[in-house]
Design a protein around this nucleic acid. Structure first.
Lengths: 349, 349
DNA sequence: CTGAAAGCGCTTACAG
DNA sequence: CTGAAAGCGCTTACAG
């Protein structure tokens, strides 16, 4: 009925050895002869004994737990993509024998929330942390890094010289936007607008800059009124497209959205006004969201590998925890154009 | 650079008190005068000190961590609903000051996986666990309960006499199926088929029995060939609907699906064969999945409150951990009919 | 009100 | 190869 309270002393007694030896067996020390090992293992299994993890950690072992911090402004983290990221981290961690302590932070301005995060690190509940959805140079993260904790962050700018306990992974947003612009240009588009993402996150400005660069490269002019603000979510895409339609004057023939959710929102707004896609306007997204292929019209987008991203990040974190890497690890994940039905070729002029 | 290594001894020294007093302050003991408390608190804050959680646990405090175990046969836990459940648990737990250690179990037949789960309990990493997606009477869970661990399970049958460390929450599937049948009957349907869920889970048979009971109550006969096997996922709904169409003879005028995912699959299969919903067949789901209202046609379904479910479950678990409830806690969450566009009235005959 | 001390269950140099 | 012992950082009766 009561859960087993057996400890290493009892195991030692029953196996006729000292606690030291039990510990050596558990920790796979080389200097214990097979017979002794077996004798001890038998008792361990018989009593279903697992060492108390708190005692192990207190005695100097690592926790084998990483923290996963999801920063989602106000809203619930209930989109498919976030889910994929979370599950990826858990899968990768658990394959390496690590546990994941998951936390949701609604607002990094909330002192309580920030304190909660720090607490987890300082209390030594975890050996390192993964942050998803953080603003670029988020102060909380910078502080944690200054304090020497190992932190792996999605979507952060890499500085020239960086601490060894900082791990960063980004998508190649520059390349992605280049691919998007190239494709649209190949379809004879010259009037190309953009709906930006959250400019506080690294991917926001980085995508925008990629767009600017690619446009310039093709000798195309940027029309300020075709550069719309957004926030990586559907609602902001909807708002941006509405704003675009409401303004007078010339209209772009194609729109690049900072991500697929933004594209969905924009397409919804266009449809509501009777503007057809791709007949009246071409739309291209970024991410290749699971819904994109099922959307009507199926969304042309820049595909990106989220699972690879989280796999790199998690592995790097665990590598650092176990081996103490002494330089900043930074990764850039590639991307590729997926052509579907939301863009069409127009007459060159 | 290096993270702070300060401990209670240092705090005590700097505050001019003993470690005992520091501990008393941290644990809010009543017998420490305000001045002493303040003096100590000041030093604690100044040094950004958080007690080492392993030491606390080893000394007898509870971990304030619960385990979240998602059992998802083979597939990745990437559907919106699972996500809602996970996030709900995390939110509820963290509101109570608890952390959540999330785990994904692919297969409860996998010995390694089972061992991993037990380890987490025996190691004292957590004070209790929440299981989602388990088969009814899952042996792993039974074993944990026998060993005295506090376990909260979604979708399990409640036995007459149950252990105090077992916490159960179910939807009122009986009522839900009754509502579904009643509604269809009110639309003059008499030929009502059903696509079942996973019969190894409590909700599988319980929904089916609810259907049988309601049908009988209306004096309607059950046609065995209109009772299709399923598995709570879209694919199984698709298969079931296909099988139904392929069989000769009379066809039902309405189908009740074990959940909305199953309904989506079935509707997809119907559409592919040119069978229109609700013109040719009425379909009703169960859950009110986030997609249901956006589906075409919008799905009529039995709405169920997942957040309430997880909130009850998590609160009960924490209540047990902290106060040691001495009887089994079981909850049943209600449900209600949401009428949308996938069912229509037919001519009475 | 407060300190000294035992104890939580492990690991790991240190001897032998 | 193996045991005795110190130490990890806390909490909590026990005295006073």
């Amino acid at each position: 009925m009561k859960n087993n309270e057996i400890n290493s002393v009892e195991i030692a007694k029953r196996a006729g050895v000292s606690r030291s030896t039990v510990s050596r067996v558990i920790n796979n020390y080389p200097n214990v002869p097979p017979e002794t090992r077996e004798k001890v293992m038998k008792v361990i299994q018989q009593y279903n004994y697992f060492p108390n993890v708190s005692a192990q950690v207190l005695a100097g072992k690592i926790t084998k737990t990483i923290g996963l911090f999801l920063i989602e402004k106000g809203e619930v983290a209930s989109d498919v993509l976030t889910n994929t990221l979370v599950v990826s981290v858990i899968e990768n961690a658990s394959a390496a024998g690590y546990y994941v302590l998951t936390n949701i932070i609604r607002n990094t301005q909330d002192e309580e929330a920030v304190k909660g995060v720090k607490e987890i690190f300082y209390q030594r509940r975890i050996n390192g942390g993964v942050f998803i959805g953080a603003a670029n140079h988020e102060p909380l993260i910078e502080e944690l890094i200054q304090d020497g904790f190992v932190v792996a962050v999605v979507d952060q700018e890499l500085k020239e010289k960086s601490e060894s306990n900082r791990i960063i992974v980004n998508f190649d947003n520059d390349l992605g936007m280049q691919q998007a612009v190239d494709y649209l240009v190949s379809l004879n588009h010259r009037k190309i607008g953009v709906i930006n993402g959250d400019m506080l996150r690294q991917s926001g400005p980085s995508k925008y800059e990629g767009y600017l660069k690619a446009m310039k490269q093709h000798g195309l002019s940027i029309r300020p009124e075709w550069v719309l603000p957004g926030d990586f979510n559907e609602h902001s895409g909807y708002q941006a497209a509405k704003a675009l339609m409401e303004q007078g004057g010339d209209k772009p023939t194609a729109i690049i959205a900072a991500n697929d959710s933004v594209a969905f929102g924009a397409m919804k707004a266009f449809k509501e006004k009777g503007i057809q896609i791709p007949e009246d306007i071409s739309v291209i997204g970024f991410d290749d969201h699971p819904i994109s292929s099922m959307y009507h019209p199926a969304l042309t987008t820049i595909k990106v590998d989220f699972k690879e991203m989280m796999s790199e990040l998690t592995s790097a974190l665990i590598r650092h925890i176990e081996q103490g890497i002494d330089e900043c690890q930074a990764f850039r994940i590639g991307c590729s154009l997926v052509i579907r039905d939301s863009c069409r070729a127009i007459q060159p002029k």
